[in-house]
């Protein structure tokens, strides 16, 4: 991962900030320059709730570099209460027990790091919404 790219995406990665079209109200995550619904170019910040349900997922058993310690883990598309769908890693669970429709909630987690001396990348991940 690249330090500058990660840094630019801080509002999305750290705070789940989406863009809401000032004309038609369509929410885009990540934010866009032009509304895909109506073509308008003005947006207000909309903070996503982070709560939703699992729409679909896959289990990663052969993890890419930097993710080995978590394998096997699930990556899924989560339909948020805000009505939009976002992609995220699912942690704090046995992925074999996951099923579509499960309630999930976003937590702040470590995503990856550039080796032992490089930058640590943080962002949202999803965990089962069990009230803890």
């Amino acid at each position: 991962m690249e330090v500058a790219k990660h840094w630019r995406e801080t509002p999305e990665r750290y705070r789940l900030e989406a863009g809401k079209c000032s004309k038609c109200g369509k929410i885009s995550f990540p934010g866009r320059l032009i509304c895909p619904e109506c073509g308008y170019r003005e947006f207000v910040i909309h903070k996503l709730s982070g709560k939703g349900k699992l729409d679909t997922f896959t289990i990663i058993r052969t993890a890419p570099s930097g993710f080995e310690d978590l394998a096997p883990y699930a990556v899924g598309i989560v339909e948020l209460e805000d009505g939009i769908k976002i992609l995220g890693q699912i942690t704090d669970c046995d992925p074999e027990t996951l099923k579509t429709g499960d309630k999930l909630v976003a937590k702040f987690r470590r995503i990856n790091e550039d080796g032992k001396t490089g930058m640590i990348y943080y962002a949202y991940k999803f965990v089962p919404d069990v009230g803890i």
């Binding site: 978590l70 942690t91 704090d92 937590k107 702040f108 987690r109 470590r110 995503i111 640590i120 943080y122």
Partner: peptide
């Protein structure tokens, strides 16, 4: 802690 948890993530989730 899970491998993707550290002092920063615990602090953020507690602070939220």
């Amino acid at each position: 802690p899970c491998p993707d948890e550290d002092t920063a993530t615990l602090a953020v989730n507690a602070a939220r």
